[in-house]
Design a protein around this nucleic acid. Structure first.
Lengths: 158, 158
DNA sequence: CGAATGTAGTTATAGTCAATAACTATTATC
DNA sequence: GATAATAGTTATTGACTATAACTACATTCG
């Protein structure tokens, strides 16, 4: 990378240039992420869900009897952070905690009927909110984007 | 979106499926972002910089005499949050704060020679760290990715 | 068996980042 | 000249993540 100098071209007025960050993939990723996240957050809020809460519910719906440890591993969050979220989901009767008989250290998490209904409604709303952010991308481009993002994610973890 | 049901296919063993989140663009964006951000963070840490601090420095280097308000606007952060960052940059003598004579409410922020040097070194290191995360994407793909991310960002703000 | 080790869940705590409101000083408006 | 607007600051809050230490239970192995 060549040294960054104040750009001394004779453009009149205070034309501003973002720094080296603007060319960095991570920075662009973050800004796009904020747009999508805000939209999703707003949609989820109508169901009194925050994004991490919805994500946990979503994984539990598709994986009945999942343990908190496995849930944490799949969402790449710390086990300790699942506790508060599952607490809330249980209090709202969206998810049930059941001691496992084979290993009494573990809990089996399953979504209740109410949990599944709320999940499906929220998932629909969030998907629509995201679609609004992606109107400038064709279907093919959206698919390619997700595929490339997964390649980036996979580049580190395997 | 069709209702999410526990997938009852007869696959043996505890094969797990992530929930609806896995198909959501925002979720994939986040996971890829975390990979890139972690790598960048690690690289920046060698220069005692955190990412927001580096970003501010980067913008100031390219925009001598920029005001904190303009800096906040460009990075889409709150003005109040620039204060602590600029404080640190000033203490480390990477950036100077100068009262403007035309408007004594404003400060003009400029990078010092030391600030520019540190910036260039850090930018180089961060770019290399990012490159490691992007090895699975061709140059064309990387360019396309950034371009698509900018289209997403632009879909809301203009 | 039973002591040592490991694992699952939990609790408490701290750090990072973003956002808000309220304040001071200065400038612009009418 | 009074009022409103702007720039920077301060203090505080909240969301999310990460770490360490704790308990209860299970496994390993002498």
């Amino acid at each position: 990378m060549p040294p960054a100098r104040p750009e001394t071209d004779a453009t009149p007025g205070p034309r501003r240039h973002e720094g080296a960050v603007r060319e960095m993939a991570g920075y662009n990723l973050k800004r796009a992420y904020i747009v999508l996240h805000s939209a999703a957050q707003e949609a989820a809020a109508e169901f009194d869900l925050r994004i991490p809460t919805f994500s946990c519910l979503s994984v539990i719906v598709r994986n009945p009897e999942i343990t908190p440890s496995k849930l944490a591993e799949m969402l790449r969050i710390e086990r300790s952070n699942t506790v508060v979220i599952v607490d809330e989901l249980e209090t709202r009767e969206l998810v049930s905690r059941k001691r496992m008989k084979t290993d009494r250290r573990r809990y089996a998490l399953s979504a209740t009927v109410r949990g599944r209904h709320l999940h499906d409604q929220a998932a629909e709303a969030i998907a629509q909110a995201e679609a609004t952010c992606l109107t400038r991308l064709s279907d093919d481009e959206q698919a390619l984007l997700v595929e490339m993002l997964n390649r980036i994610e996979g580049s580190m973890t395997g």
